[in-house]
Design a protein around this nucleic acid. Structure first.
Lengths: 164, 164
DNA sequence: CAGAGTGTTCAAGAAATAATGAACAATTTG
DNA sequence: CAAATTGTTCATTATTTCTTGAACACTCTG
């Protein structure tokens, strides 16, 4: 029966949420997911599902799915509040944790399946030119896989980086 | 009046094109753009607009827009063929060139506008918590900007990389 | 154990995005 | 300079993707 959740969000909060909506869209993630992360990010207190629906005025379904996705990439942390059986979360704000989750759940599987498909294609009869192009693609996926840990490490550090 | 363009594409070529359709989708780029790059990538000879429409069976509009986008990120190279006034292109296959084009045309502008919007928000009156969150966001965009040249260099090299 | 509280699922509708193709502008050719 | 060739634009249509909300399952609580 909680009812402090329907607090209006401020203009600044809305701006910050929009920041995440933009970012989400850029990463091919639904707008509503960006909003959900945004509301957690702006909130000092842990929020539950219906706080999200009330503050953002989105459906329970969207909020539920948004939270699930954000949990899957470690962008939300569970918080247990005594005397309230709703699940509460706070935004994870360590960029590296979120990046790692995103890489692990979204990028790696995609790269992996691409490189597996390529492997199969290498066994087919083909022209010189296509052989060469397949080798090019193979090197691309390899580089893709190799760059990920470096991006992760880079985003996790607080110091300037150098490439040697 | 050229008419060698209506050659059927092979099963393997279709697979390679699908590879790019997948990749394009993952980057939030329309399927048709992936197809267009794919047909150039598989072709040994330079192709013109109507070769693309015939081989892929897509509309002239899609092909034209796909080519324009691909040129804008340096994924296609112009080739001038004497005795044919149509524009011809080949696929650029240096990963770094394409990556750089994509970063310059798509990613940097997005990051830039985000960080400008953030700068404005920093001047508004706000709570301790939101001040702190805005600082977090600022550090994220900074790291984003810094990581790009690193990714570019990494993808351009043929040697293993280390971070120091 | 009936009723209330909480979260999930997924079919249907709404919204956003992409593809088409006809009209057009620009250029070249005979 | 008329006709043909080439490529672009953009309103319309088609497709894909997202959001909604009602039905459901599960868990608590009195």
């Amino acid at each position: 029966m909680s009812n402090e959740g329907d607090t209006q969000i401020s203009e600044l909060e809305r701006e910050i949420i929009d920041f995440f909506v933009n970012a989400a869209t850029a990463f091919g993630i639904p707008k509503s997911v960006g909003e959900v992360y945004g509301i957690f990010f702006t909130s000092e207190e842990p929020l539950a599902l219906d706080d999200v629906t009330q503050k953002l005025q989105i459906s329970k379904g969207s909020a539920s799915q948004g939270i699930r996705f954000l949990k899957s990439i470690n962008a939300l942390n569970s918080v247990y509040l005594t005397g309230d059986r709703r699940d509460h979360y706070t935004a994870e704000t360590k960029l590296r944790d979120i990046t790692d989750g995103f890489i692990k759940e979204r990028i790696r599987p995609q790269l992996q399946s691409s490189s597996e498909r390529l492997k199969i294609l290498k066994n087919t009869k083909k022209s010189k030119h296509l052989t060469s192009q397949l080798n090019t693609l193979e090197s691309w996926t390899k580089k893709g896989k190799l760059v990920l840990p470096f991006v992760s490490k880079f985003l996790g550090s607080n110091e300037p980086q150098k490439i040697i």
